[in-house]
Design a protein around this nucleic acid. Sequence first.
DNA 1: CATGAAATGAGAGTAGCTGTCAAAATCTAG
DNA 2: CTAGATTTTGACAGCTACTCTCATTTCATG
Lengths: 227, 227
Amino acid sequence: MPDNDGMTAARPTTPTTPSTPATPSTPADRPPLGLRERKKIKTREAIRAATYALVEEQGYDATTIEQIADRAEVSPSTVFRYFPTKEDIVLTDEYDPILLEELRARPADEPWPDSIRHVMREAVRTGIEEDLAVAKLRTHLMVQVPAVRSRMMESMSVTGRMLCTAIGERTGRDPNSLEVRVYAMSLIGGLMETSLYWAENDHQDDFANLVDRTLTTIQHGLPKETS
Amino acid sequence: MPDNDGMTAARPTTPTTPSTPATPSTPADRPPLGLRERKKIKTREAIRAATYALVEEQGYDATTIEQIADRAEVSPSTVFRYFPTKEDIVLTDEYDPILLEELRARPADEPWPDSIRHVMREAVRTGIEEDLAVAKLRTHLMVQVPAVRSRMMESMSVTGRMLCTAIGERTGRDPNSLEVRVYAMSLIGGLMETSLYWAENDHQDDFANLVDRTLTTIQHGLPKETS
DNA sequence: CATGAAATGAGAGTAGCTGTCAAAATCTAG
DNA sequence: CTAGATTTTGACAGCTACTCTCATTTCATG
């Protein structure tokens, strides 16, 4: 089988900066952060901001890398140096580490489904509240642009793998067993659909509530009848 | 919101030929099929065959559309006329209609989880037995090539929508309700992972058996402790 | 300030994919 | 069987995401 080419970038999950809170406001309160690092962060955010703006103005496909580079005042090469693909510019999930951390913090004697419920709700809440507008735009793009949706699914499968190891740690089960992997991916699949549902209904519902209903459904199967 | 561009092809699920069994063996047993139609089918299959062969020789990414066109003895334009994307050449699922039909054929009084189990197993069996080698190559590519995996996930989300309507018909529930959609997608997600698991373990397990375990896991949650 | 390392920009090149247009093949009438 | 309408095809041009290389600039450090 002569294959194993074609890997498209492995995504380091926490790309470059280890501990950087979302506030680049005061640029002089973190001594151990060189000028270079700060510039890199600023560039990264400039690219993302430019992308968000352009996408909202023109739509996703109509926005080219060149335009993004122009508005962010960098060269196109630099854009690709910061993000492996165009889709990654609008996605870039920082949820995985949150989720893992949250899951490890749960009391060891808590029933497993309860842990999942807590953790999912918490991760989702933090992720959403951080920037509601961005979350809405992201989910909106997931619905509208197939490429973005695909990329999101890819990323969720990564999250799935992480969930597997977490479940393994938590329950002492083999993280690579079929059962664990299937369980994790069915959760992920369900939550994915929840995001789509939220966006398709123009973000009218309370997302945390939707997540709750999702977990109940997965846990107990389809309820008797609720239309 | 100026978006709604960027749709990448909607896939008609049953592309061009309405009733063509998988046997192109005797090319003279179907009178109401014009020469034109027959040639189209032959071209389609030539492209797919060429792609399978080249991918097995060189790997997916190393295989260009031009090479495929050359070996299939058509022009590159023609390749794109038959398949919207390169990934679609190796995927092209005919599973959806089978699944839907199978689901409608179940007795109306059968408990819902049993129906799912039957149908999934049947659909999987038919799909696999039709050409085991192709099924193996596909799942192998799913593991190796991110682009193919993404495309497969896309297609599974289509299958998910169809599952929703089937569930709606079957249970009288709203096919667009969060609960139904989540239930469907968790099933799909689980089965997706099952395919990956199968391929990652070099197709050693019996796939039908894996599917069985998968459905049990989704239905009852993680079992106490196995493995 | 000088030296080394890292980030950047410029440019060329690949390949997937879209569109157009004229030529070739197929179907349909007379 | 021929003529015309229709469909399929191939050649070509063009766009853009993405990769790679190399010279230049920018920062870090002694």
